[in-house]
């Protein structure tokens, strides 16, 4: 559905994305995980042709069989909503506060689909129903500030579905929501992707959410994909030291409690030392060098190639090349 090869996004001197290659097929659900600043949101925007004006973008993007690299804004604009749609993190802020929810969801139907008002209204009711909004008739006349965060995110999902996109990008769609509401939204996205045979790119820092939502996963660090493969396999046995660190830094998942050490004292939650350095200060070689627990002498200088592993997995780490 969408294929990126060697896509880089640069601001003067700093690169927010470096040689990102990935593809998502119809009906496939891909997770993108990483810390803030890892470039995952920039990757989402690049797939929408919405990188900031100041950024330079290089590499190939093929969307639904059409090469979009270097395409002007007006070509991207025609692709948005109809081929690729996106939902965002803050459902309150992402809805126009002055528009009734009905007007918001009817707008693309009127503007892009050429529907009349009554047809657009009927279609909006269907979409509200499809995304699980109760009492859709009453919702049409309400404003964003009158409904809950979970309902707002459902309205945004309905909006993103108006023009039947083949690819839906969800950038941290559950981060601003309560845990149980977040779970419902994930279930909804999975159901929609399966039912509509729609590709889903699920961007999150929340590994549990990504584990639930996706079949394949790409782990990002410093603007690069450092590890990828089937979600269960990668999360069960991560090969890249960064992915291991990320998994280790989670509080107990799936009923585990933070362990106790031999003396029965609670173990501190392990963390990855340091924080993601500013883009301009990332090492030229492996971007994780400097924070890595098992760093080799040449890691900071030499860039590791993605090392292919069985089951379609890969990881970009010198340790794998060394046969460790």
């Amino acid at each position: 559905m969408i294929a990126l090869s060697d896509v880089s996004v640069g601001f003067d001197g700093a690169r927010a994305l470096r040689d990102v290659t990935l593809s998502v097929a119809r009906g496939e659900r891909l997770g993108i995980v990483g810390e803030s600043g890892s470039g995952k949101s920039m990757l989402g925007l690049a797939m929408m042709g919405m990188v900031p004006d100041a950024a330079r973008i290089a590499g190939e993007i093929v969307l639904d069989g059409t090469a979009m690299s270097g395409a002007p804004e007006r070509v991207w604009r025609r692709a948005r909503a109809r081929k690729v749609a996106m939902i965002f993190q803050e459902p309150m802020a992402a809805l126009n506060p002055l528009q009734r929810l009905g007007e918001t969801v009817m707008e693309p139907l009127l503007v892009h689909q050429g529907l009349g008002r009554s047809a657009a209204r009927a279609r909006t009711l269907e979409l509200f129903d499809e995304v699980g909004i109760p009492d859709p008739e009453a919702r049409l006349r309400q404003y964003p500030h009158e409904i809950s965060g979970g309902q707002r995110q459902r309205v945004l999902i309905a909006l993103s579905l108006t023009c039947d996109p083949a690819l839906l990008i969800a950038d941290e769609p559950t981060t601003a929501l309560d845990a149980h509401v977040a779970l419902r939204i994930i279930e909804l996205l999975v159901r929609l992707a399966d039912k509509r045979r729609m590709a889903l790119v699920f961007i999150s820092h929340d590994l549990a959410a990504v584990a639930r939502a996706t079949e394949r996963i790409a782990v990002m660090y410093g603007g690069e994909i450092v590890e990828g493969g089937p979600t269960p396999a990668v999360l069960a046995a991560p090969r890249h030291p960064y992915t291991r660190g990320l998994l280790g830094a989670r509080p107990g998942i799936g009923g585990q409690t933070p362990g106790r050490d031999a003396d029965g004292r609670r173990k501190r939650l392990p963390t990855i030392p340091g924080s993601v350095p500013p883009l301009s200060l990332l090492p030229a070689g492996c971007r994780f060098a400097g924070r890595c627990a098992v760093e080799l002498s040449h890691c900071a200088a030499v860039r590791p190639e993605p090392y292919r592993l069985p089951d379609g997995r890969f990881a970009a780490c010198h340790l794998l090349g060394a046969g460790t």
């Binding site: 919405m50 604009r77 909503a81 749609a85 965002f88 802020a93 992402a94 707008e107 909006l159």
Partner: peptide
């Protein structure tokens, strides 16, 4: 603001 980004993401003129 975010909702203007939403409008751009919806491909409005």
């Amino acid at each position: 603001l975010d909702y203007v980004r939403t409008a751009r993401a919806m491909g409005y003129p």
